[in-house]
Amino acid sequence: MRFHTRKWIKPEDLNPNGTLFGGRLLEWIDEEAALYAIIQLENPKTVTKYISEIDFISSAKQGEIVEIGIEVVKFGTASLTLKCEVRNKMTRQTVIKVDKIIMVSLDNNGNPEPHGKHKVEFVKDRLNET
Rank of each mutant, 00 (worst) to 15 (best):
R2P: 02
R2H: 10
R2K: 14
T5R: 14
T5S: 14
T5M: 13
W8V: 06
I9A: 07
P11A: 10
P11K: 02
E12S: 10
E12Q: 15
D13F: 09
P16H: 04
N17Q: 08
G18F: 00
F21P: 02
G23A: 05
G23H: 05
R24N: 12
L26S: 00
W28C: 03
E31T: 14
A33T: 01
Y36V: 02
A37D: 03
Q40C: 08
E42F: 00
N43F: 04
P44Q: 14
P44D: 10
K45R: 15
K45P: 00
K45D: 11
V47S: 01
V47Q: 00
T48A: 14
K49T: 07
Y50G: 00
I51D: 01
E53N: 12
I54Y: 02
F56S: 02
I57W: 00
A60D: 04
A60T: 07
A60Y: 06
A60W: 05
A60M: 05
Q62F: 03
G63K: 04
G63W: 03
I65V: 15
I68W: 08
I68D: 04
I68K: 07
I70A: 06
I70V: 14
V73E: 14
K74T: 06
F75H: 12
T77Y: 04
S79H: 09
S79K: 07
L80P: 12
T81D: 14
L82T: 09
L82F: 11
K83C: 15
C84D: 06
E85Q: 12
V86S: 14
K89Q: 15
M90C: 03
T91E: 09
R92W: 05
R92Q: 11
V95M: 12
K97T: 15
K97A: 08
D99C: 01
I101L: 12
I101R: 09
I101F: 09
M103V: 10
M103G: 10
V104Y: 09
S105Y: 08
L106S: 06
D107T: 02
N109Q: 12
G110C: 07
N111I: 09
N111H: 15
N111L: 15
P112Y: 11
K119D: 11
V120W: 02
E121C: 02
L127V: 13
L127M: 08
L127S: 01
E129P: 00
E129L: 10
E129T: 09
T130H: 07
